[in-house]
Amino acid sequence: MTSSTAAAARDPPTRAARIITEVLTPVVPVLLICVLCGVHGAPRPWAGLGWGLLAGVFCAVIPFAVIEAGVRRRGFSDRQVSRREERRGAYAIGIGSVLCGAAALVLLGAPALLTWALATMVVGLLVCAAVTAAGIKASLHMFCATALGVFAALLVSPWWLLVLPVLLPVIAWSRLHLRQHTRAEVVLGAVLGAAVTVLGWLFVPAGG
């Protein structure tokens, strides 16, 4: 690391951007989506919480752990998988883990709403993978945060949409400040997150 790079990493805006990026990493909204759908899809909230946490293991914990191990073995440049050419492998890990989770939940009799959420996640990952393969590195930070806001609005209250105009600019600033995405990529991430979730809602199971 050069002296100029080290100095940039120590300045307050860059430190703030790194903290935001780490705290609001896609793992967090994905885990919250799983818990939200588990609680709202099960007859008893505590049982739904258990289902949601189980789904979160497959959708958030396992992919994060595999990517973290890849970083240590230098298979990935960093835990955010900043390099576009590395994201194909990261998407494959995510899709495979979520599919395994969905299969396990179906076999165990999990709430239909939760399995629908996992199916929506797979579609979202496939869409982002296709866009990335086309040369545009859509922001997963923006995608997942937007999806969480839309999930909350659909399942709890439309008022949750008011969180997005506050949260998304903060995330977008952090990703732009760290030069991990272009403006088009952060906007595209948010648009895809909203579109996939809303369109997926058309296929939510009856009674979900």
Results as ranks from 00 to 15, higher is better:
Ala17Thr: 04
Gln80Glu: 14
Gly50Thr: 07
Ser97Gln: 03
His181Ala: 01
Thr120Leu: 12
Thr146Trp: 08
Ala102Glu: 13
Leu164His: 06
Ala6Thr: 13
Val35Gln: 04
Ile20Trp: 07
Val30Leu: 15
His177Cys: 02
Pro111Glu: 11
Cys144Pro: 06
Cys100Val: 08
Thr115Lys: 02
Ala152Cys: 14
Pro63Met: 08
Arg15Pro: 05
Gly189Met: 01
Gly124Phe: 03
Pro169Ile: 05
Leu125Pro: 02
Gly208Asn: 08
Gly96Gln: 06
Ala206Val: 10
Val131Ala: 05
Arg83Gln: 15
Leu113His: 04
Val30Arg: 07
Thr5Val: 13
Glu86Ile: 03
Ala6Asp: 14
Phe58Tyr: 14
Ser77Lys: 14
Thr120Cys: 13
Thr2Gly: 15
Ala7Arg: 11
Val106Gln: 13
Thr197Val: 10
Ile20Val: 15
Val81Gly: 03
Ser139Trp: 03
Arg79Ser: 11
Thr120Ser: 13
His181Phe: 12
Gly56Glu: 05
Trp160Ile: 01
Arg183Lys: 10
Ala7Tyr: 08
Glu68Ile: 03
Gly89Pro: 00
Thr14Trp: 08
His181Ser: 01
Thr25Val: 14
Trp201Ile: 00
Ala194Gly: 14
Ile67Gly: 05
Ile19His: 15
Ser174Thr: 01
Leu49Thr: 04
Leu178Ile: 01
Phe203Met: 07
Thr115Met: 04
His141Tyr: 10
Arg74Pro: 06
Cys34Lys: 00
Leu155Thr: 03
Cys128Asn: 12
Thr5Glu: 15
Gly75Phe: 11
Ala17Ser: 14
Arg73Asp: 12
Arg79His: 13
Ala153Glu: 11
His181Pro: 01
Val30Ile: 15
Phe151Leu: 09
Gly94Pro: 02
Ser174Ile: 01
Val98Trp: 05
Ser82Ala: 11
Val39His: 10
Val150Arg: 01
Thr132Gln: 02
